[in-house]
Design a protein around this nucleic acid. Structure first.
Length: 936
RNA sequence: GCGGACGUACCGAAGUGGUUAAACGGGCAAGCUUCAGGAGCUUGUUGCUUAGUGCAUGCGCAGGUUCGAAUCCUGCCGUCCGCACCA
C-alpha cells in the first residue's frame, strides 16, 4: 500500500465532499480546539501530537452523532518572528543556515531559496511563506479540520477582537499602569525578549534585584550593590578593581563614586546623572568609607574579581558568608577576620570558610567552584539561616525576613537605592549591550481586581479538567496571579486601542481568539471591514447585547449578516473542549479562563480542558543540534499519517510521554500492513451464516471496551482493542471455527472498519471502499453495543478448552511420556454444589467460620473432611474459584464436544469421564472447570 | 525551600482494595517455516520443585489499616515538573 497515495486520495475526497466543514444545524454541537501554533519554520512530530489526539477524539464525537467543529488558526504575535527577521538582516550565520534549511524542504532551486530567505527581512514575508506550508503539513496528518475558518493573529478580525477584549478589561478596571523593569538593548533602543538576545534560549538572562548601598566617602558616597542586604552586619571591607575606570558623578543631586559602565544603567533606571570626572580604581585603594547599618569605617581593598560592568563596580565584603570575599582576603594575607552573623543549618560560625575548605578552594582563579559555593550558601542561607544576636534589631529574624526588612529600611532611610542588573552580561542579536531599563507607565493586567478571581474560580468549578489532578494547579495559579505586564514597545500584534504606543503582548492577545472560529468564514463571506468590527459589533455578535437595528446602523453591517453571525456564534460557543500541553496551564489556559469571564456572558465560558504529555525522539528531547527532529514532511514520506496516528495512540497514553523511536515505529507500520491484509481477507470471505456465540460474544465485548475507552478519551485503551485485540480474536476464530462459521464471523469486519476509522482514517476508508464500495466511513455511525450478545458461559467454554489444552501439554511434559491415551476426568458432583455455594457466600463474607458452618448445614456434610480442605484452599487462593461455575453434565458435554479437536491436537485417544466413574486416584484433584488429567 | 506528580519484568507500559499481577507492544532465547534475507508462526523469558496440571516469592525501601493491598495511610530513598511575565 502506497501510503502517500492513499493519504492524498482520501484527503482530496474529504475536501471535495466538504466533509469537515460543519455549519449550525439541529444536532448537538461539539467545539474542540487546540492551541494555535506559532509559526517558526517546519512542523515536526512535536506539533503533531496535540492535533492528532484532538482529531481522533473529534472524529469519534462526529461519528457518535454530534456536529463537530475542529478549527485551527495561527499565532504570529510577539517578538520571535521579529528576531528571525533581525537575524537574517544582520546575517546571523545560525539563523541563515536554519531558515535556508527550512525553505529548502519546499523549494528545490537554490537561487530561489536564497531569494526567499532574504525576503524574510520583512517579518510579514515569513508569515506569508510559512502559513500555507503549515496548513499543508497539518493536513497530511489526516485532520478533520475546517480550514475555512482559519486566520492569523495578525489579521484585522483578530486585532479588532483583541481591541474589544482590552476595552472590556479597561471598563472593568482590570488594567493599570506602573513602573516596570525590562531587558533593554542599547543599540536597538528597545525592550528585548529571550528571542532577541544572543543565546537567550540556551542561557536565559534574568533581572536581578540589587540594593545599592551608600558608603560615606570624602565629599560623597562610594556606592556598592548587594543581593544580600541581610549580611550587612558582617561587612569587613570594600572591594575595588584598580584596573577599572570609575567616575565621580552627581546622581540625583548627590555625589556618587561608581564605575564608568554603571552610568548608563543608572540613567536608564530613572536617575539623573552628571559625570564630573573619571578616576582610576587605584584612586580608592586603602582609603576608608563608612559602611551603612554598622556605621563603621571599612577599608577599600583591591580585588580582581570585581567586574566594572556588573552593578557599580564596588563590592562590599562579607567574608563570613561569601566565598569570593573570604578567598580574596586569604590571598591578600589580610589581617581582617570574618564576623559571624548568620546561623545556617549544617554550618558553623563561618560558612564560607567551611565550604571553601570542603571544596578545596584556595584561589580566586577557581571561579567555577567559587560560583558554585556561592550558589550553595545563598540557597542554604535563604532557607535555613537565622540572624545572630549581633545584628541589631534584625537579630533572630530568618534570612528571608531580614533581607526584606533591611532592604526596606535602606530604601526608606535613603542610604539604599533599588537597582536592577542582568544575571549575566548579554548582547542582543546585533551585538549591542543588553541592560535593565525601567519603564514608566507600563500597562498591567491586574488579576487581583475586585471580583475577577471569584468569577474565574466559578468558571473553573464548572469545568471538566482531565486528568483532574491539574485542577489544584489551576487553583494555585489563580491564587498567585497578581499583575502581569500585558504590552510591550515592540513585536507583532495588536496595538492597545487607548494607548497606541504599546503593542499587546503575545500571551495576552491569545486568550479568546477561539471566539472567532464560529464566525471567521462568515466575516469574510459578508466582506465585513475592519473598521466595522467595532465594540458594539462584538458586543452584539458575542454577547447578544444591543439591538440589532442600532448595531446595524452604527456599524454599517446589514441586519441579515449580523443575525447570521450572532446565530452562528451562539450555536458554536462555548468551547466544549480544549486539548493542550500542561506547560500552558499557569499562563495561557489560566488567562483564557480569566479573559472569558471578563468579556463573555456566563453561558459562553469554556467547559473542558484535557492535557497531553511531552514528546521525545529516540529517548531525548527533540532539537536541531541533536539531529533527532522528525518533520511532518519526513513523516509523510516515510510512514504516512496512519502510522503516526497508530503509533502515537497505541504506544502512549494521552497524559504520558511519547517517545518516537524508529524501531517501534516500523513495527507499527508492519502491523498496520498485516492488519489491512487481514481485514481485506475478511471483507472478501464474508458470507451469510451463523457464527458461534462465543466468537460473537467476544467481539461484542471488545466493541464495548473500545467504545468505552474512546468515549473517555482513553485513546490508548481504544487503540489497543482495535489494533491488537480484534485481530487476535480474528486469528483465534480462524483457528477454532469451521470455514462456514468463519465466513459468517467475517461479517463483523464492517463494524471493525468503523471502529478503526477515528484512529487510522485513511486505511479505514480504503477498507470501507472494499467492503461497501461507497460513502465515507469517516462519517459512518459509531456501532451500538448489543449487550445481549455478550454470553459469558459460551466464552468460558472456549477458554476452558484452551486451558485444558495447555494443561494437558504441561502434564505431558512433566510426565515425560508420549501419550497413547489421555483421560480427562471431570470433577465430582458435590464439588459443583460446593463451588456454587462458595461463590455466593464469598460475596458476603471472607470469614472462614461463617462459611464453614453454613456449608456444614447442608448435605455436603457427608464429604466433611474433603470439604474442609477444599474450602481452606479456596479461601487462601480464591482464584481457584472460576468465573463461571457450570454443572457437571454441561462440563462433561462441553469437553466431550471438544474430543475430536483434542484427539487431533495430541494424536492420542481421549477419554472423558466423570470423576465418580474413574478409579484413578488423580480423579480426586479435579475441580469444577479444572478436570484432572491422566496420561498413559 | 514550597507545591505537584511518579517509582510494576531486560525496555515501554497495563492494572488503582477482591476472578492466576505483568495484558499489550518491543527485546532476547529455542523450535518450525523460507534458497537466502526480510518476515511469519509456536514456545519460553522471578525462584524452587515435582509423576502430575504444583508451591513459594514478588509491584522503590520500611512500617501500618484490612479477612484481603501494586492499589488506602505514615515515614524514608530516588526521578521528573512548576515557582511567572516567556512563547
Amino acid at each position: 500500500m502506497d501510503s502517500q497515495k492513499v493519504v492524498r486520495k482520501w484527503q482530496k475526497r474529504w475536501k471535495d465532499a466538504k466533509l469537515f466543514e460543519p455549519e449550525q444545524n439541529k444536532q448537538e454541537k461539539y467545539l474542540i480546539t487546540v492551541p494555535y501554533p506559532y509559526i517558526s519554520g517546519s512542523l515536526h512530530i512535536g506539533h503533531a501530537r496535540v492535533v492528532t489526539e484532538a482529531d481522533v477524539f473529534a472524529r469519534f464525537q462526529r461519528m457518535s452523532g454530534k456536529n463537530v467543529l475542529f478549527p485551527m488558526a495561527f499565532h504570529i504575535s510577539g517578538t520571535p518572528v521579529l528576531g528571525i527577521s533581525l537575524g537574517i538582516e544582520k546575517k546571523d550565520p545560525k539563523m541563515l543556515a536554519l531558515y535556508t534549511e527550512y525553505v529548502k524542504a519546499y523549494i528545490n532551486d537554490g537561487k530561489e531559496v536564497e531569494k526567499i530567505v532574504q525576503s524574510f527581512k520583512d517579518p510579514q514575508k515569513i508569515v506569508d511563506f510559512f502559513i500555507p506550508k503549515m496548513v499543508d503539513e497539518f493536513s497530511l496528518l489526516g485532520l478533520s479540520v475546517d480550514w475555512r475558518r482559519s486566520f492569523t493573529s495578525g489579521e484585522g478580525m483578530h486585532q479588532k477582537m483583541v481591541e474589544w477584549l482590552f476595552k472590556k478589561y479597561k471598563e472593568n478596571g482590570y488594567l493599570m499602569q506602573g513602573k516596570y523593569p525590562v531587558l533593554f538593548s542599547l543599540t536597538l533602543n528597545n525592550a528585548v525578549g529571550e528571542d532577541d538576545i544572543k543565546d537567550g534560549d540556551l542561557d536565559p538572562v534574568e533581572k536581578q534585584d540589587f540594593v545599592l548601598l551608600k558608603f560615606a566617602f570624602e565629599d560623597g558616597f562610594v556606592v556598592a550593590g548587594t543581593l544580600r542586604p541581610e549580611t550587612m552586619f558582617g561587612q569587613t571591607n570594600l572591594w575595588v578593581n584598580p584596573q577599572a575606570t570609575y567616575v565621580k558623578a552627581k546622581v540625583d543631586g548627590e555625589t556618587w563614586y561608581v564605575s564608568k559602565d554603571c552610568v548608563t544603567k543608572l540613567q536608564y533606571q530613572e536617575h539623573k546623572v552628571i559625570v564630573e570626572k573619571e578616576l582610576s580604581g587605584s584612586y580608592f585603594l586603602n582609603k576608608k568609607a563608612i559602611a551603612p547599618f554598622i556605621a563603621r569605617d571599612v577599608v577599600i581593598l583591591e580585588a580582581s574579581f570585581v567586574k566594572p560592568n556588573i552593578c557599580t563596580g564596588f563590592v562590599t565584603s562579607v567574608p563570613s558568608d561569601a566565598p569570593f570575599d573570604y578567598i580574596a582576603l586569604q590571598q591578600l594575607k589580610s589581617q581582617i577576620k570574618p564576623i559571624s552573623i548568620i546561623q545556617t543549618k549544617g554550618f558553623g560560625d563561618f560558612p564560607a570558610m567551611e565550604l571553601c575548605k570542603k571544596m578545596k578552594i584556595t584561589s580566586l582563579s577557581q571561579e567555577t567552584e567559587l560560583k558554585e559555593a556561592t550558589q550553595e550558601l545563598y540557597k542554604a542561607g535563604f532557607h535555613t539561616g537565622i540572624l545572630k544576636d549581633n545584628c541589631g534589631r534584625f537579630s533572630g529574624m530568618t534570612v528571608s525576613e531580614a533581607r526584606k526588612s533591611m532592604r526596606d529600611e535602606a530604601l526608606k532611610d535613603g542610604f539604599g537605592v533599588q537597582f536592577y542588573e542582568t544575571s549575566r552580561s548579554a548582547v542582543s542579536r546585533d551585538g549591542g549591550d543588553v541592560i535593565v531599563a525601567m519603564l514608566d507607565q507600563q500597562w498591567f493586567i491586574d488579576f487581583t481586581a475586585k471580583g475577577w478571581k471569584e468569577n474565574a474560580k466559578k468558571c473553573l468549578d464548572g469545568m471538566t479538567i482531565q486528568p483532574d489532578v491539574y485542577r489544584k494547579m489551576f487553583e494555585d495559579t489563580f491564587a498567585w496571579l497578581e499583575r502581569r505586564p500585558c504590552a510591550r514597545r515592540r513585536g507583532l500584534g495588536t496595538k492597545l486601542p487607548f494607548d497606541t504606543n504599546w503593542v499587546i503582548e503575545s500571551l495576552s492577545d491569545s486568550t479568546v481568539y477561539m471566539s472567532l472560529y464560529p464566525i471567521a468564514h462568515l466575516l469574510r463571506e459578508h466582506k465585513i471591514k475592519d473598521n466595522q468590527m467595532s465594540e458594539e459589533f462584538f458586543d452584539f455578535v458575542f454577547n447578544g447585547h444591543g439591538a440589532l437595528k442600532d448595531v446595524a446602523k452604527s456599524t454599517g453591517v446589514n441586519e441579515q449578516a449580523l443575525k447570521e453571525l450572532r446565530q452562528s456564534f451562539d450555536y458554536w460557543y462555548p468551547i466544549d473542549h480544549r486539548h493542550t500541553f500542561p506547560a500552558h496551564l499557569p499562563n495561557h489556559l489560566s488567562f483564557m479562563i480569566f479573559a472569558h469571564v471578563a468579556a463573555f456572558d456566563k453561558k459562553y465560558w469554556p467547559k473542558k480542558v484535557s492535557f497531553h504529555g511531552m514528546v521525545l525522539s529516540e529517548g531525548v528531547k527533540m532539537s536541531k543540534s541533536k539531529g533527532n527532529t522528525v518533520t511532518l514532511l519526513e513523516l509523510d514520506r516515510e510512514y504516512g499519517a496512519d502510522v503516526f496516528r497508530a503509533f502515537l495512540c497505541s504506544t502512549t497514553s494521552v497524559e504520558s510521554t511519547m517517545n518516537w523511536d524508529k524501531g517501534t515505529v516500523s513495527h507499527v507500520q508492519k502491523h498496520l500492513e498485516s492488519l489491512f491484509e487481514l481485514a481485506s481477507e475478511l471483507v472478501k470471505s464474508k458470507k451469510k451464516g451463523e457464527s458461534p456465540a462465543w466468537a460473537l460474544s467476544q467481539f461484542e465485548r471488545l466493541k464495548k471496551k473500545a467504545s468505552e475507552c474512546i468515549a473517555r478519551m482513553d485513546l490508548r485503551g481504544y487503540s489497543m482493542v482495535v489494533l491488537y485485540d480484534i485481530p487476535a480474536l480474528v486469528k483465534k476464530a480462524q483457528k477454532l471455527l469451521s470455514e462456514q462459521q468463519m465466513q459468517a464471523f467475517a461479517n463483523l469486519v464492517s463494524d471493525w472498519i468503523v471502529l478503526l476509522s477515528p484512529l487510522v482514517p485513511h486505511l479505514a476508508e480504503e477498507l470501507n471502499e472494499l467492503d461497501r464500495g461507497k460513502g465515507f466511513v469517516s462519517i459512518a455511525t459509531w456501532p451500538k453495543v448489543d449487550e445481549k450478545r455478550i454470553d459469558p458461559i459460551e466464552e468460558f467454554k472456549v477458554e476452558a478448552f484452551e486451558q485444558l489444552v495447555s494443561d494437558i501439554k504441561t502434564v505431558i511434559t512433566l510426565a515425560k511420556v508420549t501419550p497413547k491415551e489421555i483421560s480427562v476426568l471431570v470433577s465430582s458432583q458435590w464439588k459443583y454444589q460446593l463451588f456454587l455455594m462458595l461463590r455466593d457466600l464469598l460475596k458476603e463474607t471472607r470469614d472462614m467460620k461463617v462459611i464453614i458452618s453454613a456449608i456444614m448445614k447442608t448435605d455436603l456434610k457427608k464429604s466433611g473432611e474433603d470439604v474442609m480442605k477444599l474450602v481452606q484452599s479456596v479461601l487462601k487462593d480464591p482464584q481457584k474459584l472460576p468465573e463461571v461455575v457450570l454443572d457437571q453434565k454441561t462440563e462433561l458435554d462441553t469437553i466431550d464436544g471438544m474430543k475430536e479437536r483434542l484427539e487431533q491436537a495430541f494424536s492420542s485417544k481421549i477419554v472423558v469421564l466423570a470423576a465418580e466413574k474413574s478409579s484413578d486416584k488423580k480423579a480426586n484433584v479435579a475441580l469444577p472447570g479444572k478436570p484432572a488429567i491422566v496420561v498413559k
